[in-house]
């Protein structure tokens, strides 16, 4: 550790009149006031009008997504319901004679899928555990409502908010893989 000796020599006459301090303060305050008033540079972000650019990988509210054909991806396996630490997710399965899934490669889809956004902690375990890649933490961070009931998002609302997740096409890749295996010899890289 090197030591630095701070210069504490007594003030000169000019310094002891407080004038340098005054002029320094004047300069700094004028510069800042000028930058704010004339150049319009403020550090404040005026929130409701201006918003952050939400970074990639941000963990916002979890929503259900649809596949490219607009069909529900969720197969009502209830893994997310079991894994959810604050127990925010509640799934009502369709039952034996219930509704069939609206896509191929799936037996069923949930009759009702509710996420209580007041309970949700945005941890992302549901996204991690989902075998169908049907639920994703998206970029919404500011959820508001006028009642508790309003903050429980149902299946319809979650699917609408989630939209289509274009990047993930699990079953298409599976199909491609299966087709590749029909060819012999298997193409190796």
């Amino acid at each position: 550790m090197s030591t630095k000796v701070v210069d504490r020599s007594p003030l000169t006459f000019y310094e002891s009149t407080y004038l340098p301090a005054l002029l320094g303060g004047l300069k700094v305050t004028t510069r800042h006031a000028w930058n704010t008033l004339v150049k319009g540079k403020t550090v404040t972000m005026e929130y409701p009008e201006q918003k952050w650019v939400v970074p990639e990988g941000y963990r916002g509210a979890p929503y259900l997504v649809k596949d490219q054909e607009g069909a529900t991806k969720c197969v009502s396996c209830q893994l997310c319901e079991f894994v959810c630490p604050p127990k925010a997710i509640r799934i009502t399965p369709p039952g034996p004679n219930g509704q069939k899934a609206d896509r191929t490669n799936a037996e069923k889809m949930p009759q009702e899928f509710e996420i209580n956004m007041l309970r949700c902690i945005f941890c992302g375990l549901c996204q991690e555990v989902c075998p169908e890649e049907a639920i994703f933490l998206q970029k919404d961070y500011s959820l508001t409502g006028e009642s508790r009931a309003e903050m429980i998002f149902n299946k319809e609302k979650l699917l609408k908010l989630g939209g289509t997740h274009a990047g993930i096409q699990k079953w298409k890749h599976k199909l491609d893989e299966a087709k590749e295996q029909e060819v012999f010899p298997v193409a190796t890289e």
Binding site: T29, H32, A33, N35, T36, L37, K41, T42, V43, T44, E46
Partner: peptide, 13 residues
């Protein structure tokens, strides 16, 4: 307001 301007803020608005 003046405090705000000197501190790079817009102030009460």
């Amino acid at each position: 307001k003046i405090s705000a301007w000197i501190q790079d803020r817009p102030g009460p608005n």
